[in-house]
Amino acid sequence: MGLQANFESLDETLAWKDDEMLECVSVVPEAPNTATFSFRAPSGAWFKYQPGQFLTLELPVPGGTVWRTYTISSSPSRPLSISVTVKAQADSIGTRWMLDNLRPGRMLKASGPAGLFTLPKRPNGKFLFISAGSGITPSLSMTQYLFDRGQSPDISFINCAKRPSEIIARRQLEGMAARVPGLKLNFVVEEDDPYQVWTGYRGQLNQIMLGLIAGDYLEREVYCCGPDPFMQAVRDMLNGLGFDMANYNQESFGAPVETAADAPEIDDVVPEETAAAEISFAASGVMAACTETDTVLAVAKASGLNIPSGCTFGICGTCKVKKTAGEVHMVHNGGISEEDVEAGYILACCSNPIGRVEVDI
């Protein structure tokens, strides 16, 4: 309460305005093609913003100026400087220029801060931060802010990365977690680094991992940031687990939202118990009526057909069948490859028919 009150009562006339250029004061490597750039206001002005907001930088790249938007990775509880953590992709222009050319002493024009992806005004609840890659930056700002309030926050923190060496700000996060018992860190990687020991989660984040990491996820406010397919997968997981999506917040690191009108409409497919569906088991000549909340496996068994199955939770892959027509909503837990999905295969145990569906059984 004290930190929030003091922060809001700071003299507005001393706050940085974006008509003043920023001076780069430090560059800290974080991971391959990733660095944190910190800036100060030459006038000595302090920075006022909300954790999770973004800054737009004007970058003088060869061929003409470009404007790039980055989530602020520092915390407003430390208002004498402001930082962004950026990761260059293969086709990056502005971010690549920053990594190759931006050094302490260089001045940049910036606008902001802005954005709606922020914590509640009185952030005293239970939080679940889920991110992938450089989508970690708003979670990092929020976590640092909650840590700096001086009381142990209640945060379950999940970040997904390609490999351990690509986890951004890992030491910073571990330093905070070592001092407050309420911050629980969990990292999920797709693959190990050669000759390095990794004892954490591997693979793609799924419902089972989520339950193991944060068993009380139904009680938490979720903040999610990452590539659109990642956030779609997280929403599908939460919808499938009965999470109240009124407590879900997201922001794509590719397109931060400045006003509510700019926010893209989320229209996820959620199977409905009252919506009629139909499954044609083509090889058996059986047609079965059902609802969208029935699984292909359950309907097959009720129709006297046998689809081999094991876990019934999308893990083992035993119930993989070929879908030859129609659409299903499938939320699996790693039991099928992307290549098989693209080829038309589904896991019968976790696939819900949407309308009329035909499978090769």
Rank of each mutant, 00 (worst) to 15 (best):
L10F: 11
E12V: 11
L14S: 10
W16S: 04
D18L: 07
L22A: 05
A45Q: 07
K48F: 04
L55I: 13
L55S: 09
T71S: 15
I72N: 07
S83T: 10
V86D: 03
Q89I: 12
D91P: 01
T95Y: 00
D100R: 14
N101S: 13
L102G: 05
G112W: 09
P113R: 07
A114Q: 14
L116F: 00
P120S: 10
S131L: 06
G133L: 10
I136H: 01
T137G: 00
M142R: 06
Q144W: 01
D154H: 10
I155H: 08
I155R: 05
C160Y: 03
S165W: 06
A169T: 02
G175E: 14
G175M: 10
A177M: 02
G182D: 11
Q196N: 01
V197F: 00
Y201K: 06
I208E: 09
D216T: 08
Y217N: 06
Y217E: 05
L218Q: 15
E219V: 05
R220G: 04
P227W: 04
D228C: 00
D228H: 01
F230Q: 03
F243L: 10
F243I: 09
Y248T: 12
F253Y: 15
E265M: 09
V270P: 09
P271R: 08
F281A: 08
M287P: 00
T291P: 00
G304H: 06
L305D: 05
N306G: 04
C311I: 14
C319A: 04
G326C: 08
H329Y: 13
H332M: 01
G335E: 01
S337C: 07
E338G: 15
P353H: 08
R356Q: 11
I361S: 02
